[in-house]
Simulated assay, not measured.
Amino acid sequence: MPQAEILTTAQGRSLAYHKTEGTGPGVVFLGGFKSDMQGTKAVHLEAWAQRTGRAFLRFDYSGHGQSSGAFSDGCIGDWAQDAMTAIRALTDGPQVLVGSSMGGWISLLCARGMADKLAGLVTIAAAPDFTEDSMWAGFDAAQRAALQENGEVALPSDYGAPYIITRRLIEDGRNHLVLRAPLDLPCPVRFLQGNADADVETAVALRLLDHAQGPDMRLTLVDGADHRFSDDDCLALIETSLEEVLERCGTA
């Protein structure tokens, strides 16, 4: 596999990335919380882009994968800033963003913060506002006290070592909520969600669809699909949804 290239941001963070040249609108994959650009969906979409001649970008947020920094030092604002910097610096023209889990939240922040770079949007098990609505709302009194007193709390994870959740992550998340104010998505949008997702409830996808405003939004619920959304059928659905968005971009 080719070695990742490095983009240095104005904040001094080094972001690792892989870029595929091709036709536009390009596609940018935005990964999830503590995930990286070597994940199944990112690599699958890169192969799809190479096969179809489409421009494609995958990268690691700071504190993730091969990029610089410690994961526990980061927050939603940092990672959204990383994404916007990478999109501005490494892509040409409007892009279709594919956001997975936390990447769905990041993609919505990008849509709000750099609308000129948005051609379309596909989210996969999007987790907007999860630091507030899932983490903080789910903390018991002891966990909230530990967060305030110690600056962090450990949460068990089904994906490996416990997540260290910092007070900065929670407090910064409140500055980047997208479900409390108007959310305009003036482009083709496809939300994908599994009903067997143990991390993001179907209610979140329904709330997002109900809250966002746009001329071409659809939510697809997949029976039995979990949060990974990475089996063959789910990957095929991601491709189909992306191709539909790209086709509609061309006729918008």
Rank of each mutant, 00 (worst) to 15 (best):
A119V: 09
T8H: 08
T23L: 15
C249A: 09
L221P: 07
A181S: 15
W79Q: 13
L45K: 11
T251I: 14
D78K: 09
S241N: 09
L206D: 14
L118S: 06
E149P: 02
G74H: 01
A115I: 11
R174F: 07
C75N: 15
R218L: 00
G160F: 05
P94A: 14
D158S: 06
D231E: 05
S101T: 01
W79M: 09
A142G: 13
F229A: 00
Y61W: 05
P25G: 05
L169D: 07
R228F: 03
D216Q: 07
M102R: 01
Q95W: 13
A161R: 11
V153C: 11
G53R: 14
V204F: 09
A142F: 09
G26P: 02
H176L: 10
A205W: 07
L183A: 01
A16R: 04
A252T: 13
L235Q: 11
A47S: 12
A252F: 00
E201K: 11
G26T: 03
G26L: 07
W136S: 14
G113V: 00
Y163D: 11
A86I: 00
A142H: 11
K19C: 06
S107W: 08
E46H: 08
D116K: 13
G120W: 01
Y163F: 05
I87C: 06
E46S: 13
L206A: 03
V222Q: 04
A137Q: 15
A145N: 13
C75V: 04
L221Y: 04
I170H: 05
A70K: 14
E244I: 05
L221E: 13
C234I: 05
L209S: 10
P25Q: 12
L147A: 04
A70D: 13
H227Q: 11
P128N: 03
